[in-house]
Design a protein around this nucleic acid. Structure first.
Lengths: 192, 192
DNA sequence: GCGGTTACGTGACCTACATCACATTCGGAA
DNA sequence: TTCCGAATGTGATGTAGGTCACGTAACCGC
């Protein structure tokens, strides 16, 4: 399935567009390819674009004191990712994004998103609902953080995204769960 | 300042409306008053409305195993609150909301919000940006949770919302920070 | 194929925070 | 005013998870 088709199917879950509208929407995106390990957004960068994942997996993360890394999101196909704080507020990136595997992306600039939204009520509607869902998911994760211990959070993560188990190294899973790699390692070796 | 004026000033930070448009927008809201301690949304309720706070303070919280309470949000004047997961997905409330002080609210039903958004591109734009900001704030809080210990999170909270110190009991501050009230108490009594 | 970097496990020990128990203070209702 | 429950402080002790240290195995570039 080609890039346009993947994007089209994704947006059609929220809004209906004619083929012409869909083409117009797609025409604002730019295809970008990255190799495993490449940096898409580095800390301190100016952030002008957000990204729609066609294939592969990225991580959006924050590094504290140049030492500890916390992963905010594993971005999988049909997910959107960027440093939205920096993108919306026109500040330097605090969050970095790099590639866990080779990836294919569609990028959309801040200006083009706003252009699409102002031209098209439907586009505005789409982006409203995309963020609504993201907001609810973020609240849910926050709650899980407060409410559940590491073992439960680990099991929930794998239950929801089983493909992560083979796709990403364990120390990154630990960084997503907010624990040390040693603690995560002990979770599934120690019985009970 | 009356309710309409408060709401108007709030939305004018994001979009420009004529007086007529502003009146039309406001006409979909219903004024609601609650006394300290009253429940606005209870766990298990059907959720049909979201709320804009005119005055007072509410808490949006989750109770685990009928024992531990975690506060997701202290809702202050000009903030919006609801169980958005339940509201958007038409499921029963998992989050409860009640009043820390006497409260004046403007309620907006799900249907009226969608009506406003479909009638008015500007309204859709407003709600998109409202959620965008909420999403960024939720990510920031998640990061603070992973990155900072209780003392730092407590200091950040009071630095950002000093009024909370006198307004809400400490055990609720603890529930927001995700720690026991005893631990919070020891933070500011023990030196250093 | 070699050498080094990365991933991962594991033991010993440390620390932040939770839990339990109890005392004290304070605000609101009768 | 009196009383009761809510809010708060504080000691003793338990525990999840962090940190440090070390070893091994897999992977990657040259």
């Amino acid at each position: 399935m080609d890039a346009k088709e993947i994007l089209k199917q994704h947006i059609s879950k929220t809004i209906s567009l004619t083929d012409d509208e869909s083409d117009h929407f797609f025409s604002h995106f730019k295809r970008e390819s990255f190799k495993k390990g490449q940096v898409v957004i580095g800390e301190g960068d100016d952030v002008d674009k957000e990204y729609f994942v066609l294939s592969g997996c990225l991580k959006a993360f924050f590094v504290n004191d140049e030492i500890k890394m916390y992963i905010l999101q594993f971005a999988m196909p049909t997910w959107w990712t960027s440093d939205y704080g920096a993108l919306y507020n026109h500040t330097k990136a605090l969050i970095s994004i790099d590639c866990i595997s080779d990836v294919e992306l569609l990028s959309l600039s801040n200006a083009d998103r706003e252009k699409l939204c102002s031209e098209s009520h439907a586009a505005e509607h789409f982006f409203r609902w995309r963020t609504n869902k993201g907001y609810v998911a973020a609240q849910k994760r926050l709650l899980s953080f407060m409410n559940n211990n590491v073992r439960v959070r680990y099991e929930q993560l794998l239950a929801q995204y089983p493909e992560l188990y083979n796709l990403v190294p364990k120390h990154l899973i630990a960084a997503y769960l907010g624990v040390s790699r040693e603690t995560l390692s002990r979770l599934y070796t120690s019985h009970k």
